[in-house]
Amino acid sequence: MARDGARPAYDPAGPDSALRTALQEVRTGRWMSMRTLLAETATWGQWTQRTQILAAAAAGTDVVRAWLAEEPDSVPAVVMQARVGVERALRAARDDHRRTQELWHEAWLASDTASRAAPHDPVPWVCLLALARLDREQRWDEHRVAPPEPMLPPGPWGLLAQAHKRDPYNREAHHRMVQFLYARSASGRLAEAVGFAHWAADGAPPGSALHVLPLYVRVERYRRTGGRDAALDLHWVAEDATREARRAFQGWFELTTAAERSPLDLNHLAHALWSALQFPEAARVFDAIGPYYAPLPWACRTSGPADHAQAVDVFLQARARSRSAARRP
């Protein structure tokens, strides 16, 4: 399947078939498969990823509320309540909904409750980090803590430290920190996010998904220009872009198994390697992606970022070119 020429489709569960089954149940208002899946989740990394994806599906339903009504002492249900609350608050903020403040407050309370109900779980702290981006004026003291190094900006470092304490180098926690810095530089050049991403990658151990983080910031920088600046195209093939792509390939991809890799990270890495003309390495990553395409980063290379069909076309062209070049002697 990994090497075929089939047109891919987006699936939030990726290769996680157990998660896919639970998502189907959640969308129909049933929670038993979700409870079973979370009870069988073995690592904090997988727990973080599964709770995030489940919350995105559950946010438009009352399925977690129904679970809590049946099992009010369930710690996973309490954590999922926080996840769903955060998802709803972030959606409301994105849509400039009149209930954003109310939903933000509810989500914060649910996350605080979860942090006490599950003291060893990084997810409640990831939830609080996710909400930090809504405090655009940084009125909350916990969102403007001094950084661990002088070259880094102030921010919710205490929240990141709490997540790190429970799950060192937690992938989502660091992505949430980057999103906080994006929100703070809504019209800027993302210098703070660039600096943070490289700091996180520099300190991450071999095999950590944080080695892929700088690739996300590079895509965001391009996305913010709308791709209109022709000179910016050079940043895909510049020396630092090539170095970032190869570092992620060598420091993450080559040191991990298929089960440890997020489809989002794989797609960002394939895009970066293809963009930097590193075709043999890109071909290997495309093989690992198989059918588990993700709209970003491919959508940023289209004339209409909301046109998913066009994004798939870019993906297919990049895959075909990488594989063709990789086969040449």
Rank of each mutant, 00 (worst) to 15 (best):
L159A: 11
V178S: 14
P124S: 03
L160C: 10
W44V: 01
S275V: 05
H271M: 14
Y292K: 01
A283H: 12
R83N: 08
A193T: 06
L19F: 05
R261L: 11
A132D: 09
Q278M: 11
S185Y: 13
E220I: 08
A59Y: 06
A58H: 09
F315W: 15
E244Q: 13
V86I: 08
A186Q: 07
L316A: 02
W44G: 12
R327W: 00
A118P: 04
W236A: 05
I289V: 12
A326Y: 12
S322R: 09
A173K: 12
P153G: 03
S33I: 04
A276N: 03
L19Y: 05
V212G: 11
E87G: 09
G14H: 09
A173N: 14
R65M: 06
D11V: 03
L68H: 01
V217L: 13
L215G: 02
G195E: 13
A204N: 10
A59W: 07
P156A: 02
H198C: 07
V212Y: 07
P12F: 11
H105W: 10
A306T: 03
G226C: 01
R176A: 09
W125S: 05
T48S: 15
G188P: 07
D62C: 05
R223F: 04
P147E: 06
A69M: 05
F180E: 11
R35N: 12
S33N: 12
R133I: 04
L296H: 15
A309C: 06
A173Y: 11
W157K: 05
F315E: 13
M151K: 15
G14N: 03
A107H: 06
D167W: 02
P119H: 01
T43C: 05
G203V: 10
G188H: 04
A57H: 10
R65F: 07
E260Q: 14
A42T: 09
P153A: 00
L103Y: 09
P168V: 00
L234Y: 07
A272K: 03
S187W: 10
P150A: 09
G155T: 04
A69L: 07
L134H: 03
H143K: 11
S324I: 03
D307G: 01
S275P: 02
W298N: 11
A270K: 05
A186I: 04
R116P: 00
A117G: 00
A238D: 15
Q310R: 15
Y222H: 14
M151H: 15
D11P: 11
P122L: 01
A59P: 07
A204F: 09
A231I: 02
N267V: 00
W67P: 02
A110N: 00
I289A: 03
T257A: 10
P168W: 08
A39Y: 00
D141R: 15
V75I: 09
R176N: 13
